[in-house]
Design a protein around this nucleic acid. Structure first.
Length: 154
DNA sequence: GCCAACGTTGGC
DNA sequence: GCCAACGTTGGC
């Protein structure tokens, strides 16, 4: 079992949007970065867990935990010419972009803020990718140690 | 295959 | 709104 961090701008899709979705499930679509694509396609499996992170907002931070309930499958939004994430180079027979399905497991009563996480950026959370400068991937792996440490911050 | 230009992201 | 970081594109 592996751990991940899913990053989203709450103005576009927040943890409350996920909570309001049918069965608390959404496809993690619209990812158009090859490194992130490879993780979605090859590495993120049913049964894995993820943090849900809010970025580009007043208080960035980890807002909850999600279950991965379906591993990588083609991103349909890439096939739709009217969709914002349409990609002419992705065809159903040879899809270029992939999604996983995530389901809300826990919404934290209080967000674990980026400020809080930064207190440990040189110690316990030294290798947490979200704390690295310039990290822009919308999905990143989280080590089991980091996962467990973050959960102690709730 | 190199690399400059460009676009996007995200924290502040 | 600014700026740093970095992935992608396209000309050569």
């Amino acid at each position: 079992m592996n751990y991940w961090l899913f990053k989203s701008e709450p103005a576009a899709f927040s943890i409350d949007h996920l909570a309001a979705a049918p069965k608390h499930v959404t496809a993690w679509d619209g990812v158009r970065n090859f490194q992130a694509r490879n993780m979605l396609r090859d590495l993120i499996k049913k049964g894995d867990l993820g943090f849900f992170y809010h970025s580009s907002c007043a208080t960035p931070g980890i807002t909850g935990v999600v279950n991965i309930i379906k591993g990588g499958y083609p991103d349909k939004t890439a096939f739709d010419p009217n969709h914002h994430h349409y990609d002419i180079d992705s065809e159903p027979l040879q899809p270029r972009w992939f999604v996983v399905d995530i389901k809300l497991k826990i919404k934290f009563k209080q967000i674990i803020t980026l400020d809080q996480l930064r207190k440990y950026e040189n110690t316990s959370l030294r290798d947490l990718l979200i704390l690295r400068r310039g990290n822009r991937l919308s999905v990143t792996p989280v080590s089991q140690k980091n996962w467990e440490f973050v959960l102690t911050l709730i």
